[in-house]
Amino acid sequence: MPWAEALIAAKTRKIDVGEGRVLSYAEALNEALRTAMEMDPKVFVFGQGVDDPAASFGVTRELQEKFGRERVFDVPLSEEAMTGVCVGSAMSGCRPVMTHNRPDFILLSMNQLVTHAAKIHYMDEGRTRVPMVIWAAIGRGWGSGAQHSQAVQGMLLGVPGLKIVMPSTPADAKGLLLAAIADDNPVLVFEHRWLMREQGVVPEGFYTVPIGKGVYRRRGADLTIAGTSHAIALALDAAEALACEGIDAEVIDLRSVKPLDEAILFESVEKTGKLLVVDTGWAMGGVCAEVACRVAEQRFDALRAPLRRIGLPDVPTPAGHTLEQLYYPNAETIAAQIRAMCA
């Protein structure tokens, strides 16, 4: 069965059943789109397969039935042009949400995203706005391989004018997508395929999670783990496993990688003196590198151990199962790194 690993992980992970209604991550995203479209007729959703039976992991399910073919539509396989269409519609009054099933396809649209969408507000001295959302779900496993599993947030991190959010829980997925749609800038929303079936309490109705604001997922005194998205799920598993060994790790879910919440990072590192950055993308030159660099530049005196990062190695994703297992970090590799840092 495809993505059995993800399914097993989702079933075995504890559901954070506090007070309230439980939804899956994909259902929460679907609710975010419905809410935005109900509230604002200028919001529309388009992308490959948004009205097909798979409905982008269920994220776009029944949106077309509810909001019509004009506001929810499938598109030709033309990523660059469709991203340009997204930019143009955003510049003239709409709030488009463009979806990709994988971030790999965003690479076909870099000219529009990096050279146009991100720059136009600045180039018009603040007069023209480009309120658009580019949404994609990072793949992993089941042979996704070198071209269907790329997590490209690191490549886009250095582009002024873009915002990038990467939620890890259903509640944040809904709140950050609503915040992204409400934002007057181009916002990239990177979900993770393995989070789509995660369950969690999700508030009803409209709310937003602030872009650029991290949150503590676990309090601890010995070391700080910071990251986003699926890397947080692994970090939490590792932190729980280490608790019985007497290692008390703090886990910060940054939630946004651009802008970065430096305040929460610095606050935690000042307390623990140790930082491990985790990311779903390549460690080199990406989110891991940037987060670690900022802490090294600005809180060097607080550090009591060298910074460490766990992202992907500087290697393309292999497709075969054995190589895949060796390639990806997991809770055990994260735990091993923490043990070494706390030894």
């Binding site: 042009a81 340009g84 269409v85 519609s89 510049m91 009054g93 709409c94």
Partner: peptide
């Protein structure tokens, strides 16, 4: 004058997007 692009062809899909916005709105 909605803008101009120094990347050849970069302006073209944006103008189409403006047409789409006119249609949708």
């Amino acid at each position: 004058m909605a803008g101009s692009s120094a990347i050849c062809g970069g302006n073209v899909p944006i103008a189409a997007g403006m047409g789409l916005a006119a249609q949708l709105l």
